[in-house]
Design a protein around this nucleic acid. Structure first.
Ligand SMILES: [Mn+2]
Ligand SMILES: [Mn+2]
Ligand SMILES: [Zn+2]
Ligand SMILES: [Zn+2]
Lengths: 149, 149
DNA sequence: ATTCTAAATGAAAACGATTTTCAATTAGTA
DNA sequence: TACTAATTGAAAATCGTTTTCATTTAGAAT
C-alpha cells in the first residue's frame, strides 16, 4: 500500500467516516495512477477487481474525499471532471491542447503573491486554485497551418 | 446595439455561419449583461422576448460562439458552466467562496510571463487560460469559527 | 465474542443537462 | 424570384449524477 493511500484512509476515519472495503478499493484505484480519472474511469478500475461495487458508491466516495481535500478535482473543459490523489508536494496544473486533448502538467504557477494580494483585498481565506492554459500543441498547430495553405 | 454585439455578428458571418434572428437574439441576451449566464439562463432571457426560440438553438449557438472564441466559458465548480461575452480588454477571473458561492471578479492575473515560459518549454501556442481561486469569504469563515467554538 | 445502531451499500428510478434525429423553414446566393 | 444548403423547433434519446429505499455492515458498546 502506497503512503498516500494509508494517509487517505486515516484521514477518512479522522473525518468520522467508516473505512469500508469499497472505500479502500476506490482509494486504491485513484492512488494507483498519476492520471486524472473521471468518475466513470474510477468505477471501471474498481469494477475489474470488485465487480460488486456500484457506481453510486464511487460517486459518494469521491464526494467525501473531495470534501476532506484528499483528492483534487480538475475541469478538463466541457462539463467533465476528473480526480487525482492530492500529492503533498506542490500544485498540479495543466496545459491543454484544444484540438487533440493532449495534457501537459506543470506545478510551478507562482501564484502565491497574487493569492496573498487577493486575500488581503477581499478578506477571503484562500485555500486553493484552479489554473489551466488552453492552446494548441505543436503537432496540431502544424496540421492547422497545412490545412489553411 | 452594443459594439461587441455588432462585432460578434460580423465574426459569425465571417466564420461562414448565417445570421439568423435567433442568433441575433441570443447574442443580444449574452451581450446584455456582465454576469455569467448558464445555457438555461440565456434561454430564459431570450425566451422573454422571443418565446418561439428553442433551448436547442441556444445550445447550438453557444457552441458556435465558443468555437469562434466570441464568448468565454467559466467553470463555477461542480459541473456547471456559464458564458460571458469576450471583452476586448483583459482577462476575467474569479475568487469563489466554497461555502456560499459568492464570486469576486479580478482581471490582473499577471500570468503573461508564465504563459510565455510554458509556451517556450512545450512549443504550445497558448491562447487562453482559466484561473479560479477557491476559498471562504469573510462572512462564511466567521460563521465556521463560531460553529467550531 | 456478541449485540447493537447509525452509517453505508447496491439496484432501480428519477433527475437535469445536453445531444441527436428529423421534418419543416429560411438566409443568403444566384 | 427561385434555389439549396444551413438552420430551426419539437420530441426522443442519451449522458452524468442524484435520490430513494430496503438490506447490509463497521465499529462501538457490552
Ligand atoms: Mn495532470
Ligand atoms: Mn465574473
Ligand atoms: Zn494537440
Ligand atoms: Zn461565503
Amino acid at each position: 500500500m502506497i503512503y498516500s493511500e494509508k494517509i487517505t484512509e486515516q484521514e477518512l476515519r479522522r473525518g468520522g467516516y467508516k473505512l469500508t472495503p469499497q472505500r479502500r478499493a476506490i482509494i486504491g484505484a485513484i492512488s494507483g495512477t498519476q492520471e486524472h480519472l473521471t468518475p466513470a474511469a474510477i468505477y471501471k478500475r474498481v469494477h475489474r477487481k470488485h465487480p460488486s461495487i456500484g457506481l453510486v458508491t464511487v460517486y459518494r466516495t469521491i464526494d467525501i474525499l473531495a470534501e476532506l481535500d484528499l483528492i483534487c478535482e480538475t475541469h478538463a473543459g466541457g462539463s467533465c471532471r476528473s480526480y487525482l490523489m492530492r500529492r503533498p508536494s506542490g500544485h498540479h496544473h495543466h496545459l491543454i491542447c484544444s484540438e487533440c486533448g493532449r495534457v501537459v502538467d506543470f506545478t510551478d504557477c507562482g501564484l502565491e503573491k497574487l493569492e496573498r494580494r487577493l486575500s488581503k483585498e477581499t478578506s477571503f481565506k484562500i485555500n486553493g486554485h484552479l489554473l489551466e492554459f488552453i492552446g494548441q500543441c505543436l503537432e496540431c498547430s502544424r496540421k492547422q497551418k497545412e490545412k489553411n495553405s
